[in-house]
Lab assay of single mutants.
Amino acid sequence: MEVRTIKVFTTVDNINLHTQVVDMSMTYGQQFGPTYLDGADVTKIKPHNSHEGKTFYVLPNDDTLRVEAFEYYHTTDPSFLGRYMSALNHTKKWKYPQVNGLTSIKWADNNCYLATALLTLQQIELKFNPPALQDAYYRARAGEAANFCALILAYCNKTVGELGDVRETMSYLFQHANLDSCKRVLNVVCKTCGQQQTTLKGVEAVMYMGTLSYEQFKKGVQIPCTCGKQATKYLVQQESPFVMMSAPPAQYELKHGTFTCASEYTGNYQCGHYKHITSKETLYCIDGALLTKSSEYKGPITDVFYKENSYTTTIK
């Protein structure tokens, strides 16, 4: 009895394709271990004539594949690729409408935090270190965002349907971005203890939790000093293409032309909904596939993004 075979390709990165001759009487799992086709788990399936010449994702289970996976995804987590594939199996079914010149995501599976993050990423200057993220990001900007969303979920250790947080998501993504040249110098002034300067680099240099107003941050924000008295913390120097200011959701007025974009969060910790506000020729609110415009805006804002380049204080 002759062994019926077909020729397929296996890959971990969709760049390096490895030619395989597979036995049609055995499952993919018996031949390769966990195997995925377009995100779908085909591990328990036997090869079919229609699979001839198709590319299958496999887990990096030998040295060659491990090197290829690390170079593309910059992670050695053995569960990463499987999590990416199972997320992709959902995100490829989502709709990605162009809204006001940006790629958004039609609401499904509690994905409003991903839509808000995706919209924000198209408006701030950011370059990702893992080629996987950078490639998928370019495709997302062009309207094909399924891979990018699935990668975000995998890097953030999230599953489809789980509630997510924009600030946490951005923080994970910033860790995989090139923020080497970003720098922030802060000064804390206390009447009792004097003053202390701190220099922050990388992710810490672009994120701040405690106030939404970048102007206020430049002037000074009140913080408790270690001595128990009130101290003032203010920005001395900022070198970065953008800054992200966050605070627990509270009524906040966004003035046209003073910011790049913002995240609105309605609801409580267990259950809520994100919308995205962007400042173009007027203010726009993007909620999944829905767009509304207004000249002014007041609502429960939790993150505001500002364009920056270089700032030095005039406070002496």
Results as ranks from 00 to 15, higher is better:
Leu118Met: 08
Trp94Ser: 02
Ala250Pro: 01
Lys255Val: 15
Phe9Asp: 07
Glu2Asn: 12
Glu204Trp: 07
Gln98Asp: 10
Ala117Met: 04
Pro224Asn: 14
Arg141Leu: 10
Arg184Phe: 03
Gly101Trp: 05
Tyr274Pro: 00
Tyr96Leu: 04
Tyr57Pro: 04
Met85Lys: 07
His256Arg: 12
Ala145Thr: 03
Val67Met: 14
Leu163Asp: 04
Asp38Phe: 10
Lys191Leu: 09
Thr226Trp: 07
Ser279Asn: 09
Tyr208Ala: 11
Asp135His: 11
Ser294Gln: 14
Asp23Lys: 14
Gln197Leu: 09
Tyr72Ser: 09
Asn100Val: 06
Ala136Thr: 08
Glu71Tyr: 07
Lys191Thr: 14
Trp94Asp: 06
Gln122Ser: 03
Thr211Glu: 12
Ala132Ser: 07
Ala40Asn: 15
Arg4His: 11
Arg184Ala: 15
Ile286Gln: 00
Leu114Ala: 05
Asp303Ser: 01
Asn147Asp: 14
Asn187Gly: 09
Tyr297Glu: 01
Tyr172Pro: 01
Gly267Cys: 08
Ser79Pro: 10
Pro78Gly: 09
Cys149His: 03
Gly228Met: 01
Met244Ile: 03
Thr27Met: 13
Pro300Trp: 12
Leu235Phe: 01
Lys183Asp: 03
Val189Arg: 09
Lys158Ser: 04
Tyr265Thr: 00
Gln123Val: 06
Glu2Pro: 11
Asp109Ser: 06
Ser50Val: 12
Lys7Pro: 11
Glu215Ser: 08
Thr76Met: 15
Pro34Thr: 13
Ala140Leu: 13
Asp77Arg: 05
Ala69Pro: 05
Leu126Pro: 08
Gly164Asn: 05
Thr313Cys: 15
Ser50Cys: 11
Gln98Ile: 12
Asn111Met: 03
Phe217Tyr: 06
Tyr113Pro: 05
Ala142Cys: 15
Cys227Trp: 01
Glu264Trp: 03
Tyr72Asn: 08
Lys54Ile: 13
Leu283Arg: 00
Asn309Val: 13
Glu144Met: 08
Gln30Met: 10
Gln195Ala: 13
Lys280Leu: 14
Lys307Asn: 13
Arg167Ser: 04
Leu59Val: 15
Phe32Gln: 09
Arg83Cys: 07
Leu119Arg: 01
Pro300Glu: 11
Ala115Asp: 05
Thr282Gly: 15
Gln238Val: 01
Glu239His: 12
Gln230Gly: 07
Met207Thr: 12
Ala231Ile: 02
Ala140Lys: 04
Thr5Pro: 11
Gly82His: 15
Gln122Pro: 03
Leu235Ala: 01
Gly82Lys: 13
Lys298Asn: 13
Val185Ser: 05
Ser104Gly: 07
Gly143Leu: 03
Ala177Met: 06
Thr199Cys: 12
Thr278Glu: 05
Thr192Asp: 14
Tyr269Lys: 14
Val42Tyr: 14
Leu290Gly: 12
Pro34Cys: 11
Tyr208Asn: 08
Pro300Gln: 11
Ala231Gln: 02
Ala142Phe: 11
Val304Cys: 04
Ser279Ala: 09
His18Pro: 05
Ile6Met: 12
Val166Phe: 12
Met207Pro: 04
Tyr73Arg: 03
Ile124Cys: 04
Gln175Arg: 11
Ala140Arg: 01
Leu81Phe: 15
Met26Asn: 12
Leu133Lys: 06
Gly288Asp: 02
Met24Thr: 12
Cys149Phe: 03
Asp23His: 10
Gln175Trp: 06
Ala250Leu: 08
Leu186Trp: 12
Ser171Cys: 15
Pro47His: 01
Leu153Asn: 02
Thr282Leu: 11
Lys106Trp: 04
Phe217Ser: 05
Val67Glu: 10
Ala146Ile: 03
Asn178Cys: 10
Gly299Asn: 04
Asp13Phe: 05
Tyr113Lys: 01
Gly143Lys: 01
Tyr214Pro: 04
Ala87Gln: 07
Met85Thr: 06
Asn129Tyr: 07
Val243Cys: 05
Leu17Gly: 06
Asp13Ile: 06
Val12His: 07
Ser50Lys: 12
Ala247Asn: 06
Gly29Glu: 10
His51Gly: 05
His18Cys: 07
Trp107Val: 04
Glu168His: 14
Leu88His: 05
Asn147Arg: 09
Pro300Tyr: 13
Ile45Lys: 12
Gln31Ile: 14
Leu179Glu: 03
Met24His: 07
Ala250Gln: 15
Thr199Ala: 08
Ala145Arg: 02
Lys280Ser: 13
Pro60Asn: 07
Asp41Gly: 09
Ser104Tyr: 00
Thr55Arg: 11
Cys190Phe: 03
Phe259Gly: 00
Met245Thr: 01
Val21Asp: 14
Ala177Tyr: 01
Glu52Ile: 12
Met26Ser: 12
Gln238Arg: 01
Asp23Asn: 11
Asn268Gln: 14
Leu283Val: 14
Val21Ile: 13
Leu200Ile: 10
Glu144Arg: 08
His18Met: 06
Lys219Cys: 10
Thr55Tyr: 08
Glu239Arg: 10
Lys280Phe: 11
Tyr84Leu: 06
Ala108Cys: 13
Pro241Glu: 07
Thr5Met: 13
Ile6Cys: 12
Val203Pro: 15
Tyr306His: 00
Tyr306Leu: 01
Arg141Phe: 08
Ser171Gly: 09
Phe128Met: 04
Pro248Arg: 13
Tyr297Val: 05
His90Met: 12
Gln216Ser: 10
Thr76Ile: 14
Tyr297Gln: 00
Ser50Tyr: 11
Gly194Ile: 03
